[in-house]
Design a protein around this nucleic acid. Sequence first.
DNA 1: GCCAACGTTGGC
DNA 2: GCCAACGTTGGC
Length: 151
Amino acid sequence: MRYWLMKNEPTCYSLDDLKRDGSYVWDGVRNYQARNLMKEMKVGDRVLYYYSNANPTGIAGVAEIIKAPYPDPSQFKSASEYFDPKATIENPRWTAVDVGFVEKFEEVISLHELKNDPFFDDMIVTKKGVRLSVQPVSEKHFKRVIKMSTQ
DNA sequence: GCCAACGTTGGC
DNA sequence: GCCAACGTTGGC
């Protein structure tokens, strides 16, 4: 099993929304590096659900991959804001996955907390200037985050 | 293939 | 809402 971190704005789609809906189509990723990482995802992988543009920003809980990567349907829909005229059914360009709800932390583990702990120095999300919306997470970082959430 | 101009992300 | 730091586009 692998671990990931995915960013979303809570005003756009929050963990509460995911808990209510049960599943969510994670589409609209239009960054090649993020897409390539999504292609590596497997059913059962765990995802740290990260709130960006929030107060505070940080990790709000855990989701899991419940559907393996597949062509992002929104790239073919001309009415969609994510429409990509260069993508075709035969040659899709972008990838989506479905995620399911696992847990919501009592409190968001803020980016500030992560940055203040040297343990997370080599975690991508704490690095300055990295805007990647999908990131791989090491097992040790994932487990430490889970541990922090229960304290 | 370089690189300037432009668009986007995301913390603050 | 500002703006730094990226990524992408497109002319050449």
